[in-house]
Design a protein around this nucleic acid. Structure first.
Length: 110
DNA sequence: TATGTGACATCAA
DNA sequence: CTTGATGCCACAT
């Protein structure tokens, strides 16, 4: 309770609930947690998620569907591969029809 | 302790 | 459309 990394835990909890074949944004998660401006912390949480294998970090992208975090994966193509494996289409490191696959925790979750 | 950085988002000009 | 500034939080040095 009230741990310094409590924010991280909340982020992980949300990310784990992202449905298969869906994606969300750092800002959406931050907004769901209460602060829409704390999106950067969500990114940091992802960075620390390497030890948490249950976290589908590849389903979290920036607000335009750009795979900005792909370089943090083992392989540059890993993030793209994982998304394509879930039925998404990646074009030039960007998700095609991003809005169509967007999953907003503030609306879908509760 | 203070400063800088980051897988971001939003606003003003 | 672009660019610069600001907010947020955790972490590195």
């Amino acid at each position: 309770m009230s741990k310094n990394t409590d924010f991280f835990q909340r982020v992980y909890r949300v990310v784990k609930k992202i449905p298969h074949g869906k994606v969300t944004t750092y800002g959406a998660i931050a907004n769901y947690l209460g602060s829409r401006k704390s999106a950067r912390v969500v990114g940091w949480a992802m960075n620390s998620s390497h030890t948490n294998k249950d976290i589908p970090a590849h389903r979290v992208v920036n607000r335009v569907g750009l795979l900005t975090g792909k370089k943090h994966f083992f392989g540059i193509n890993l993030m793209k591969q994982l998304l394509e494996n879930e039925g998404l289409v990646i074009e030039n490191d960007q998700i095609k029809d991003f809005k169509k696959f967007f999953w907003d925790p503030s609306k879908e979750l509760q």
